[in-house]
Design a protein around this nucleic acid. Structure first.
Lengths: 206, 206
DNA sequence: ATAGGGTTCCATCAAATGATGGAAACAGCT
DNA sequence: AGCTGTTTCCATCATTTGATGGAACCCTAT
């Protein structure tokens, strides 16, 4: 109960939490430089200085947003791991793809922000600690890409990264791809799951 | 020889071309809102108004950059298609992955800008015509995902999109992933090719 | 040399943006 | 009610940023 982020996550109705939620949406949609503190404040319906009162400068708020979505994603992955534990690999993958895809379609800003993080350089780098390796290792172990408590080999990390990114791509690119392929929401979601299954499963189970 | 873009592509030493090249780098690295016209001008070593003289407003320059990289990518894909024409599918894919990956590692701003285009919303949408469907169809046909001159089925387009994006991800994320995995440039490139081969080929050739 | 078109830079503007100080409003407590 | 600490908003600043007008510059044809 120390940091502002912990406070916000504890009480989702608090002003801190409302601002954080809006910031997630806006940063996720327009990126760091594409989002102004005024846009976020307007989204919440408050004055800009209230935002500064709660979160300090823009860079700090962004950092909190990143930590926040990482916590959400980690929790979700842990949840999925419990569901699929013990099943044969092909089945595990099929279920995991379904679950994770559904989750991310509900919170597309998570995919957006993670991809932004990977690809974008901000002019003044916040360079924040990212915790990706955690995810990657956990997934690699869950997929039997490495034995026991050995350190995860590089090739395994790469495979996991490629998988995760394939999912994020379809989430973040929804607007563009749906427009391009002229698909309704539901059809798009189905196609995404099918395509991911088609592409990802054979490589690991052939 | 009508549009500014055609002029610039024709004479690579012209001021128009030098600005365009710098704009590609900067927009590719920092995104649309993350790049200022002053940054581009400084990169070229000219005054900001010279930039405006040649390319007009920022949005127009960005549009030209997008068209420019699309031309480059299309040309490169056509070149690769010639090399692999007639070979069996698995071999075609292996060679294509190698070639395209090498090319994009040389021009990472292409991957950056394409992914930006897919994922990012600009505050005031330029909404420019994009020509992606061309690529997609061509690749889909080249991979026998559809027969003759039939329209490309949605599932096939999705598969091609997933493939292309997997490549772009590793190019655009190089800095982040290399740092994370502690890899030297060459090792990273090798791992990327290996991972892409591992992930993409089985799905289409099993 | 010089007239004229094309090119480049200097100075400047208006709007947008990150950020803050201080007054007002609010909430809890006695 | 009155005090106290917290929260919210209004007004304002300094910088950054997109954009432009006009003077200087360069080059070529006459």
């Amino acid at each position: 109960m120390a940091t502002p982020l912990e406070k916000a996550r504890k009480d989702p109705d608090s002003m801190k939490a409302r601002i954080l939620k809006a910031a997630r949406r806006m940063f996720g949609e327009y990126g760091y430089h594409g989002t102004t503190t005024r846009m976020i404040a307007q989204e919440v319906g408050i004055d800009i200085s209230t935002l500064y009162y709660h979160w300090g400068e823009k860079g700090d708020l962004y950092e909190s947003v990143i930590l926040d979505i990482n916590t959400d994603l980690r929790n979700q992955l842990a949840k999925v791991e419990k569901i699929i534990h013990g099943l044969p690999l092909a089945q595990r993958m099929a279920i995991a793809i379904n679950q994770v895809t559904d989750f991310l379609f509900e919170c597309p800003e998570i995919s957006n922000l993670i991809l932004f993080q990977y690809f974008r350089k901000t002019r003044q780098e916040p360079s924040l600690d990212f915790h990706v390796p955690d995810f990657i290792s956990d997934i690699a172990r869950s997929m039997n890409l490495c034995k026991g408590k050995d350190p995860v080999p590089t090739g395994a990390s790469m495979k996991v990264l490629a998988m995760m990114n394939s999912i994020h791509n379809f989430i973040s690119g929804e607007d563009f791809f749906r427009e391009m392929l002229q698909l309704k929401r539901n059809d798009y979601v189905d196609h995404v799951k099918q395509t991911l299954g088609f592409l990802l499963i054979p490589a690991f189970t052939k």
